[in-house]
Amino acid sequence: MARISIEVDGVGYSDDVEPRTLLVHYLREQVGKTGTVVGCDTSNCGACTVHLDGASVKSCTVLAVQADGHEVTTIEGLATGGELHPMQQAFHENHALQCGYCTPGMIMQSIDLLHDNPDPTEQEVRDGLEGNLCRCTGYQNIVKAVLAAAAATPTHSDAAAGTGRSGGTA
């Protein structure tokens, strides 16, 4: 057993874990964050995506011990004060989910995507979601939701010139 201390969705936890415990299993079984789910065993589907120190990772491909001393944000930590995160709201308004199993990972990755590229093109959104599989939606409304969330969030380029798309590949 190893002792780890992790901040999850703003709350600190200290727990004993087996070194082999995956971060996703730690979150689900020890912290009770069952909003983050497991969809595969090869790091392909992205359903387990969380933010580790602000960057998206697949929590099935991180050991809990690797996250010792770090901060994790899950789908359950996004809404604050009863207000949905703009990306959650965009997924709802654009019917970007059906069964909802991929949705936590999809939303977490979409937030990361806009963090890196606040004003993406449709293709950039699609490419930025290449590590997240959805079997229900055909992706069209997910892409639409991410673009809507981008449009709803003021960016530097919008503020500076209002020229719409700027070189977003940076």
Binding site: S43, T49, L52, V57, K58, V62, Q109, D112, G131
Partner: peptide, 9 residues
């Protein structure tokens, strides 16, 4: 390489 999440780790 792979996808953005994998590139982060």
């Amino acid at each position: 390489v792979a996808d953005p999440q994998v590139r982060h780790r």
